[in-house]
Simulated scan of single mutants.
Amino acid sequence: MSQLEGLRAKFTKEKLILALAAPVLAIVAALILSSLVIMASGKDPFHAFTVMIDFGSKSDSQVWIINKAIPYYLSAAAVAIGFRMNLFNIGVDGQYRVAAFFAAVVGGALSLPGVLQIPIIIIVAMAVGAVWAGIAGILKTTRGVSEVITTIMLNSIAGSLIGYFLSEDRLAVKDGNLFHTTNLPSSSHFFTIPTDPKPIYGTIVIAVVIGLAYWFVLGRTRFGFDLRAVGRNESAAAASGVSVKRMVVTSMLLSGAVAGLVGMPTLLNESFNYGTDFPAGVGFTGIAIALLGRNHPIGMAFAALLWGFLERTGIQLEFEEYAQEIVGVMQGVIVLCVVIAYETVRRYGLRAQQRKVGAELGARNGNKEKAEVSA
Rank of each mutant, 00 (worst) to 15 (best):
Arg170Ser: 10
Arg170Gln: 11
Arg170Glu: 03
Leu171His: 04
Leu171Ala: 09
Leu171Cys: 10
Leu171Val: 11
Leu171Gly: 10
Ala172Tyr: 01
Ala172Val: 04
Val173Met: 01
Lys174Ile: 00
Asp175Leu: 12
Gly176Glu: 00
Gly176Ala: 03
Asn177Tyr: 08
Asn177His: 05
Asn177Met: 09
Asn177Pro: 00
Asn177Gln: 09
Leu178Cys: 01
Leu178Asp: 01
Leu178Lys: 15
Phe179Arg: 14
Phe179Asp: 00
Phe179Gly: 02
His180Ala: 13
His180Thr: 05
Thr181Gln: 04
Thr181Arg: 04
Thr181Val: 09
Thr182Ser: 06
Leu184Met: 03
Pro185Ser: 04
Pro185Trp: 03
Ser186Arg: 02
Ser186Leu: 08
Ser187Thr: 12
Ser187Asp: 01
Ser188Asn: 03
His189Ser: 03
His189Glu: 07
Phe190Ile: 06
Phe190Pro: 02
Phe191Tyr: 11
Phe191Pro: 00
Phe191Glu: 13
Thr192Gln: 12
Thr192Val: 13
Ile193Gly: 07
Pro194Gln: 12
Thr195Asn: 10
Asp196His: 14
Asp196Leu: 14
Asp196Cys: 07
Asp196Thr: 15
Pro197Val: 14
Pro197Gly: 13
Lys198Ser: 12
Lys198Pro: 00
Pro199Gln: 13
Tyr201Glu: 09
Thr203Gly: 08
Thr203Glu: 06
Ile204Tyr: 02
Ile204Leu: 14
Ile204Glu: 07
Val205Asn: 11
Val205Pro: 00
Ile206Gln: 04
Ile206Gly: 05
Ile206Glu: 05
Ala207Trp: 02
Val208Arg: 05
Val209Met: 13
Val209Cys: 10
Ile210Glu: 10
Gly211Lys: 02
Gly211Leu: 06
Gly211Ala: 11
Gly211Ser: 09
Leu212Lys: 01
Leu212Trp: 12
Leu212Ile: 13
Leu212Ser: 09
Leu212Thr: 08
Ala213Leu: 15
Ala213Cys: 10
Ala213Pro: 00
Tyr214His: 08
Tyr214Phe: 15
Trp215Phe: 14
Phe216Lys: 00
Phe216Asp: 12
Phe216Tyr: 14
Val217Leu: 06
Val217Ile: 15
Val217Gly: 06
Val217Pro: 01
Leu218Asp: 09
Leu218Pro: 01
Leu218Ala: 07
